[in-house]
Design a protein around this nucleic acid. Sequence first.
DNA 1: ATGAAAGCGCTAACAC
DNA 2: GTGTTAGCGCTTTCAT
Lengths: 344, 344
Amino acid sequence: MSTQKEITIYDIAEALDLSPATISRGLKDHPTIRKDTRKRIFDKAKEMGYQQNLFASNLRRSRSNTIGVIVPRLNSYFMSAVIAGMEKVANAAGYNLIISQSTESKEKELANIKTLYNSRVDGLLVSLAYDSENIDHFDLFLNKGIPLIFFDRVFDHPQCTSIVIDNYKAGYEITSHLIRQGSKRIAHITASIKRNVYADRLRGYRDALADHGILYDEKLIFFCNLSEQAGAEATQRILEMDELPDGIFAANDTTAVSCIRTLKQAGIKIPEQITVAGFNNDPLSKVIEPNLTTMNYPGQEMGELAAATLIRKLDTKEGTSLNTIVLHHNLIVRESSQRKGADS
Amino acid sequence: MSTQKEITIYDIAEALDLSPATISRGLKDHPTIRKDTRKRIFDKAKEMGYQQNLFASNLRRSRSNTIGVIVPRLNSYFMSAVIAGMEKVANAAGYNLIISQSTESKEKELANIKTLYNSRVDGLLVSLAYDSENIDHFDLFLNKGIPLIFFDRVFDHPQCTSIVIDNYKAGYEITSHLIRQGSKRIAHITASIKRNVYADRLRGYRDALADHGILYDEKLIFFCNLSEQAGAEATQRILEMDELPDGIFAANDTTAVSCIRTLKQAGIKIPEQITVAGFNNDPLSKVIEPNLTTMNYPGQEMGELAAATLIRKLDTKEGTSLNTIVLHHNLIVRESSQRKGADS
DNA sequence: ATGAAAGCGCTAACAC
DNA sequence: GTGTTAGCGCTTTCAT
């Protein structure tokens, strides 16, 4: 517990009979410092166990080299892949990550925003909560011109860049695929269409139906929070319908897997009676039997790109004109939707 | 981009014709401030859009209200549950979390330690990398008496608290269970026994064998990094053995699931020919068929407890005498190990 | 190539 | 109950 005194640049300055200014410059490779004094400074710093005090530096420079992250929830495979990607890029560029969860609530999101503002993060990476209607609560950041980048659950705003996949197209593709497999009454289990990801997938679903001459039926749309339990409940309601659907498109894999399990328990044959598709390419999708048809959604890549985009903005100060960056997605067809004799 | 000037307590002081000190006190409910001036201060602060500058505060108080977290990898369900738990507790207590990944490398771990030290985190929550032989590289923190708490992959040290489950007992229980199901040649797939979690489970496995009169056979122990791919490879090697084992205990669920899939492809009946058990109670375990017997490992709870323990230490300054906190675990018996007629 | 000095915004010991 | 004042450790202009 030897709370020894902190070593500061003043201590090094004294030991080397130089000024603090020179030490400060030497430590960050300032061009006007002679090579040998630079070396002396580094050696002494190491010898004395000097560690920079970032508060002082940040206070002085009004810059934190810290990036704030707000996500709805941390406990999913997808989100941890995203964070892993962000951490990798941020760390390599000398940035720290401060992470917080909105737990899907706008109030908590606002609280997080304030905390991160107080921590003077240099920028923000955000995936929005279910119930955030708009992004007025980000004004603190927007008014100050602090970069704000959305990923996955995004919001269109002239000042912000969004990183997404083309959820409309993905929803269209997955629905068309189910139709090509012979499904005509396709249920869709999804979440709040306040969020682009769900609204877009739903649009894709509707247009795919229309383009194949299938009437849209509101009763086939089930809204829930996409948890395992919600998936089971939605499926239960589906099973109680007068006329059973012959296909189900769930907006994430957790729900789709829960759905398959419930259907199997009810003795329904998949994909013969009902085709099922999910979304995300969660590890679960390769394990459930039958294997789940799903949309590959590159979480790690999305995290890396979000962080890289933000850092580029911070380092170059140039307001990149890019407003939306779209990542590739791809349909992974597996047994849960593949009927004999149909093409994929 | 209106980079308006920051509002400081001086601005509020001027507007209210008070001193900065009074504002500072008022803002943090100092007891000696009159209720009505306190209210005036709050109102004015809100009106002017004041936001505390944490750098200045932290610099002055030499305290950051920030907790550093170092984990091997972020992209697993278990780890994201742990982090979710930490974030919840930390946030409620007014702490931020800075998170970094060691990617299982001691060098990266050291780099993370230095960065977090520079950020002057108040304490550290750590799960060790595979290849950290000791914790000398934490000296920076230990020498300064900054609290260091290990969870999951821990290291015994008089200054540090560890949060774990009883891996020895868990390994013993799971192995005994397989034996009771009639397995006599049980393979064990695990990772570096430099880490307590794997060493302890292996000890439990050995002792369970011994207590049931089964000879320990080194050839049945497979070391790998417990990834999906490594699980498949290890299983491949198992399948090539002259005498096939009749039980497999894998040190995590990812590997166990990969193992089951590989065995099934080879036409092996589970649990009839080989019983299989995993570890962690990952969502995967409930989805694989047959459902996987596994050890429930409370990730979220472990994260909450780790954070709460650290924060208690920070807030009370009392060096809690607790050196190890052991969380409950429980065996979840599912089909992958349950043979007809055997008791669990 | 180096030094002197001011100040980033806040807190807390001390004064009244 | 409120004010004065001195720094926390660093960066950076300006001077030499």
